[in-house]
Amino acid sequence: MDPEASAAGEFQAYLAGTTHPRRVMALDEVANTAVFIASDRASGMTGTTVNLSIGALGE
Rank of each mutant, 00 (worst) to 15 (best):
M1P: 11
M1A: 15
M1T: 14
M1G: 13
D2G: 02
D2T: 05
D2C: 06
D2A: 08
P3V: 10
P3T: 08
P3L: 11
P3K: 11
P3A: 10
E4H: 12
E4L: 15
A5T: 06
A5G: 05
S6A: 15
A7D: 11
A7F: 12
A8K: 14
A8W: 11
A8V: 09
G9Q: 12
E10Y: 03
E10N: 06
E10T: 05
F11Y: 10
F11E: 13
F11M: 11
Q12L: 14
Q12D: 10
Q12E: 14
A13W: 06
A13S: 14
A13Y: 05
Y14V: 08
Y14P: 02
Y14M: 15
Y14F: 15
L15T: 02
L15I: 10
L15K: 09
A16K: 02
A16R: 02
G17N: 09
G17L: 08
T18A: 06
T18N: 03
T18F: 10
T19I: 06
T19W: 07
T19P: 08
H20Y: 10
P21A: 02
P21F: 08
P21W: 08
P21S: 08
P21H: 08
P21Q: 05
R22W: 04
R22V: 01
R22Q: 14
R23Q: 09
R23W: 03
R23A: 08
V24L: 12
V24I: 14
V24E: 05
M25A: 10
M25S: 06
M25L: 15
M25K: 04
L27Q: 14
D28R: 06
D28C: 04
D28P: 01
D28W: 02
E29R: 00
E29N: 01
E29F: 02
E29D: 03
V30K: 03
V30E: 04
V30T: 08
A31K: 09
A31W: 03
A31G: 02
T33P: 00
T33Q: 10
V35P: 00
V35W: 04
F36N: 00
F36D: 00
F36Y: 11
F36K: 00
I37T: 05
I37C: 13
I37P: 00
A38W: 00
A38H: 04
S39K: 03
S39D: 01
S39I: 03
D40P: 00
R41A: 14
S43V: 03
S43T: 07
S43K: 11
G44R: 01
G44S: 04
G44F: 04
M45Q: 03
M45P: 00
M45F: 12
M45S: 04
M45V: 02
G47F: 02
G47K: 05
T48I: 08
T48P: 00
T48Y: 01
T49A: 12
T49Q: 09
V50F: 06
V50K: 04
N51I: 05
N51W: 03
L52N: 07
L52A: 07
L52T: 09
S53P: 03
S53T: 14
S53V: 08
I54S: 06
I54W: 06
I54C: 07
I54G: 01
I54P: 01
I54M: 11
I54D: 09
I54V: 11
G55Y: 10
G55E: 09
G55W: 04
G55L: 09
A56K: 14
A56H: 12
A56G: 15
L57W: 12
L57R: 15
G58C: 14
G58K: 15
G58L: 15
E59S: 09
E59T: 04
